[in-house]
Write a protein that binds this DNA or RNA. Sequence first.
DNA 1: TCAAAAGTGTTGACTTTACACCCATGA
DNA 2: TCATGGGTGTAAAGTCAACACTTTTGA
Lengths: 236, 236
Amino acid sequence: MANNPNFKTAALEKISHLEYFKIAVSVDCVIFGYLDKDLKVLLIQSDLEEFSGLNSLLGDLVRPDEDLDAASYRILKERTDLDDVFLQQVHTFGKVNRHPSGRVVTTAYYSLININSHKLKIIDNDLNWHSVKNIRKLAFDHKEILETCLAHLQQEVMETPVVHNLMPEKFSLRELQEVYEAILASPLDRRNFRKKIAVKQWLQDLNEMEDNVSHRPGKLYKFKPKYLKNGFSRKS
Amino acid sequence: MANNPNFKTAALEKISHLEYFKIAVSVDCVIFGYLDKDLKVLLIQSDLEEFSGLNSLLGDLVRPDEDLDAASYRILKERTDLDDVFLQQVHTFGKVNRHPSGRVVTTAYYSLININSHKLKIIDNDLNWHSVKNIRKLAFDHKEILETCLAHLQQEVMETPVVHNLMPEKFSLRELQEVYEAILASPLDRRNFRKKIAVKQWLQDLNEMEDNVSHRPGKLYKFKPKYLKNGFSRKS
DNA sequence: TCAAAAGTGTTGACTTTACACCCATGA
DNA sequence: TCATGGGTGTAAAGTCAACACTTTTGA
């Protein structure tokens, strides 16, 4: 087989395909946070003249020697200094004219981070948290990317314990429910919510009570340690 | 804003990022078919020396002026001459060394086609249908891509009427069940299957009976026309 | 008359939803 | 003592899985 004249080596194939290496690959991160009973997303002022005044997702071109997953990780790390982040690939957007600088195919990832425990370099970066529900227009096709990732998050949130990324270490069931309501954008029945969560067995009762609340304090919980591992989505 | 010296135009940005245009983008299609009570996938002999003797998925580099979805469509069209195919993006694979010819990020799509109604150009192409369950090793990371797409198909098959792409125009409920069993790789209870399908209301009773069967003939059904539209997945 | 598959319903287990009252705390 | 949320259970509806017998046809 190796002598079959129809075979080409990888090196040869590369030469014959050089003209295809004209597409850039980027990743865009939809970074969700939670604050004031509201689902937020981290956006940056676009530095492209074409999109002046508009916000965009955090994204960057993928380096030639960088895994796709690693690129999303780097972008998050650069902005948040977070090391052990949750990141999951959602979809790849590849319309020819989606980027005015040229042909850029972008892979969208979503992430969940705890806003309070990581102060960002906000001021010097035009980097800010925005209420997801108030977002009207974004640069590029980033509105569509955001919507796709939000839908994905909404689908996953009751199946897997991803919310833990938005929570403080200790929290009450009310606080947890408020996060779910913010993500799903709809109210939940308190008793049914508690039953549903209890069945999952994600939480550990800390035998501690809330403090500084002006009503009967609730029990505090944390996610069991085995659910706190993040890492990447399996595939890259 | 437009006079802000920190803005760059898209044209300028492109120049500064030229070195990133060193990654090629491909699509790979996991094309499923159904024959002899068996889920098949369309594979081609790899023409890379590095993978001699191995099969690979159908794929190609994306052209600079071609939408990502359109590339998967083109690949399918080239091989099957099918025009109105079902194609859905599943995942993008972007490890640095996944392709020996250089850096190639690939987006995987899956497709379902009816083997009998479209004869392929099989002989001159080393192109063949293979039983999914017998596949051991493929070129590149194509085994992983296949597994990812199969899992995706298995998840979707009871939610959406995608199977219609594997069916002849008219079919009995037994035939439909056999397709489901091949996809899910597990037997289904006949009565429960029929109830589940009935609830979906995807099918139309043709008031015709099977013919040429050596047992009691079953009723024939077809998918309601509104479920036959395919097109692309929403996003590209 | 036999072999093969068609066609069909019920029961029990489980899941999901809707819903209301008393309790503990701080102001 | 009031306002606020904590904490809890049940009944009805719906969903899902398991399971068996009679019917129709061709060979």
